[in-house]
């Protein structure tokens, strides 16, 4: 890789008719060989950013280079360096998987002899060899995604853009796709720019994560760094008798500062010294003779980062919801 930074974005703006700024002055840098997770709710500006970086949309302002080429002025060179799998799979229902490969090879100017070999190889790699001669309209959602990915890889791109690659996929297909993305980055050194609205996807796959909301980047760093910024686990407790709420709050006060609870009639506290305090909390509640209906420990997640940076929960943000209204699904450890 000749360019240390595979993607370099400064002050990027994309404005649509009526003055709507889908991307509002973002800066980001992706190093070569890195998997960069671009996380945000629906409508945050992820897909628009991808379209600008992949030369499908000209920017309204700012500067972006991909593989060292300016997206606004050197579109053809950018396109030759990148592979793209967009959110809506761009497949022709009338063509078979193999025919798609052949077409893509022609579009990419791959020599005729190599087209068939490389096409077959990629179809095999994404597990579509058996379905290669079936029309794509007969494919399942997961198969279409895999074909789309194979097409994006046909010309050995140095940088791969994946726009919400696993949305709508079953768990098995999702895991298979993650494995392939991981392999591409780790073994072949491909830079991957991946947008997602799934916290887990960014957490599992990405070396670094950028969180975008309403067209601006609100946080950036490794998942661990980001979580560390806000990361203290919270404990949430629901007394069996709602009248005991204030006594419970007093009993929990020494363990940390109170925060908004996700369930009605519950109390939540951000634990100052981490999850080790859980046993002390149970003892304190027992001592105060408070019967427990529900007790849960919430590990910090990227959603907490989003919540901390925007005041909203990621899952609810697309609908304009707030953290108080929407309880996000978490990998909780329920203690009682």
């Amino acid at each position: 890789m000749t360019h240390e930074r595979a993607i370099d974005v400064a002050g990027l703006v994309r404005e649509f008719k009526g003055g709507v700024r889908a991307v509002d002055g973002i800066d980001l840098h992706v190093a070569a060989g890195e998997i960069y997770g671009f996380l945000g709710p629906n409508g945050a500006g992820k897909s628009t950013t991808v379209k600008v970086l992949t030369t499908l949309l000209p920017p309204s302002g700012g500067r972006a280079t991909v593989a060292g080429f300016d997206v606004a002025r050197e579109g053809a060179k950018v396109r030759a360096s990148i592979g793209v799998a967009l959110q809506d799979v761009a497949l022709d229902p009338m063509l078979t998987g193999r025919e798609h490969m052949r077409l893509q090879g022609g579009l990419q100017g791959i020599p005729r002899a190599e087209r068939a070999r490389r096409g077959a190889e990629l179809l095999d790699r994404v597990g579509l060899s058996d379905a290669a001669d079936r029309r794509s309209k007969t494919y399942s959602g997961g198969m279409k995604r895999r074909l789309d990915l194979a097409l994006a890889l046909l010309h050995n791109p140095r940088i791969l853009f994946l726009d919400e690659p696993t949305t709508g996929l079953d768990v098995q297909s999702r895991t298979a796709l993650w494995d392939e993305v991981e392999r591409l980055a780790r073994q072949e050194g491909t830079t991957v720019f991946l947008t997602t609205q799934y916290l887990e996807e960014a957490d599992v796959l990405a070396d670094r994560v950028g969180i975008i909301d309403r067209g601006t980047i609100v946080a950036e760093g490794t998942p661990a760094e980001l979580k560390a910024q806000v990361a203290k686990p919270t404990v949430e407790f629901t007394p069996r008798d709602a009248g005991q709420c204030s006594i419970a709050a007093a009993a929990l006060a020494p363990f940390g500062e109170p925060v908004a609870a996700r369930r009605d009639g519950s109390i939540a506290v951000r634990l100052e010294s981490g999850a080790d305090q859980l046993a002390d909390i149970v003892r304190a509640l027992d001592h105060a003779k408070i019967a427990v209906a529900h007790l849960a420990l919430h590990e910090p997640t990227l959603d907490d980062v989003f919540l901390a940076k925007t005041g909203r929960s990621l899952e609810g943000a697309a609908d304009g919801g707030t953290a108080e209204e929407i309880a996000p699904p978490r990998r909780d450890r329920v203690a009682a």
């Binding site: 499908l56 761009a90 893509q104």
Partner: peptide, 13 residues
Amino acid sequence: FGFARRLLLAAPN
């Protein structure tokens, strides 16, 4: 139906 994006993305000219 979005297929044109594939063409736009792949074609240098």
